[in-house]
Amino acid sequence: MLDIELESLTKKFGDKTVVDDLSLGIEKGELFGLLGPNGAGKTTTIKILCGLLEPTSGAARVGGHDIRTEMHEIRKMIGVCPQEPAYYTFLTGRENVELFGRLHNMPRDLLKEKTDELLETVGLVETASTKAGKYSGGMIRRVNLAMALVNDPAIAFLDEPTVAMDPQTRHATWDFIRGLKARGKTIILTTHYIEEAESLADRVGIIDMGRLIALDTPRSLMKKHSATNLEEVFIKLTGRKIREET
């Protein structure tokens, strides 16, 4: 059963086509990796699916709801971890997480339970009462992730969630993301860490210049292109390296 469906999705900014006729389906409970270089259209695609941008043409459904007409229903079931951390510097880490839980209308007891669990998972228990404005870059990334997942979303959009995390926290976050998948969550993960996509994703979609140029499991893609990793796959497809998105 498809949880996310894109049909000829296209987004243009003026004359520039950022997402070009993108079609794909993501199964319920699947962890889907979206790979591509800077400006490939990954973040724009996620923004369209979250309702932050209107598509120029095409259609998409998230959780069975049309993004053009049923966005309010979609917002109830999604969690979005933005690429650029967005948080309130004057609130503590705990308050930031709880605020977004309250915006999802979570019952008080459940909110406390989920907040405690997430702060534990991302390693922020000891600094939960510190104002987020005093957090280091890695801590900000972690609270950014916790804010996205506090509502226990059925569908999670994780846009470069582990950038700037230290290796230990990154691996803990990977375990956490695997845990989400194990609980049947549908996840779209954009990343420039090849290892992350290979390790976590059930399937990977490679986007370049707004177009989907490859779609399969990491193993199948590597086998098909006689490559040892997904970076090599991308080089063979485009002649270029995947560069870090900024």
Binding site: C50, G51, L52, R75, I78, P82, Y87, H104
Partner: peptide
């Protein structure tokens, strides 16, 4: 500027 309005916009908040 800080992306907080966008972040709130992807919650059910109207």
């Amino acid at each position: 500027e800080q992306g907080l309005l966008r972040r709130i916009a992807v919650t059910p908040t109207t």
